[in-house]
């Protein structure tokens, strides 16, 4: 029978914990990193263009959101085809997440269409807060603190921007803190979670 000291047992448990965390991070990060990067870039471009061409904002966001959804689907399909980790349970979860995001987007769209708002700043604040609530919920669901932190930080930055930044510069503020709030964590995940 194998016998070890408490110190060796502690080291073995620490090693198990470290490997388990690393494995979950690598698996989650291989898909989450590129998607965060993608939407970070889309938000940076979208908010910057909305600042430069406010009258075209609706059209800009329609095109960018469509391109983003399409690219997200391509990333998901490519990831699935690589088949590095195969699991029926994980596939089922991906399906649930896709429905979750469709529901969030449908709510965001319906609320912006049905609830009267004063200006583009209020509209963007509402949409961003709904999206960030979805990040927080997804983070709780997937036990991913980074998603909860992103959701909370971007929500606070958005509300602070709406309250204290002159409306004319709100879109630029959002390009930095909204886009950056997705892009930099995405970069971190891509570079560090491997």
């Amino acid at each position: 029978m194998t016998s070890i000291s408490p110190e060796e047992a502690r080291e073995a448990l620490a090693d198990i914990d470290q490997v388990a965390r690393q494995t979950r991070r690598v698996v989650a990060g291989s898909q989450m990193g590129p998607i965060l990067l993608l939407w970070g870039v889309i938000w940076m471009i979208g908010f910057t263009l909305s600042f430069l061409f406010p009258r075209e904002a609706a059209r800009i966001w329609m095109v960018l959101s469509g391109a983003g959804l399409l690219t997200t689907a391509v990333i998901g399909i490519r990831h699935h085809r690589q088949k590095m980790v195969e699991s029926a349970q994980a596939r089922q979860l991906m399906g649930q997440l896709a429905w979750f995001w469709l529901a969030v987007m449908a709510y965001a769209m319906a609320l912006t269409l049905l609830i009267p708002r004063k200006n583009g700043v209020d509209e963007m604040t509402l949409i961003v807060c709904i999206m960030m609530l979805a990040y927080v919920l997804m983070g709780i669901w997937l036990r991913s603190p980074i998603l909860v932190v992103i959701g909370l930080v971007v929500t606070v930055a958005t509300l602070a921007g709406r309250a204290w930044i002159p409306h004319r510069y709100f879109m630029l503020w959002m390009a930095v803190f909204g886009g950056g709030g997705l892009f930099f964590p995405g970069l971190y995940v891509k570079l560090r979670w491997k």
Partner: peptide
């Protein structure tokens, strides 16, 4: 430890 960290039905390359 790495394999046990994933779903029970997971197959890993």
């Amino acid at each position: 430890a790495a394999l046990a960290a994933l779903e029970a039905d997971a197959r890993v390359d």
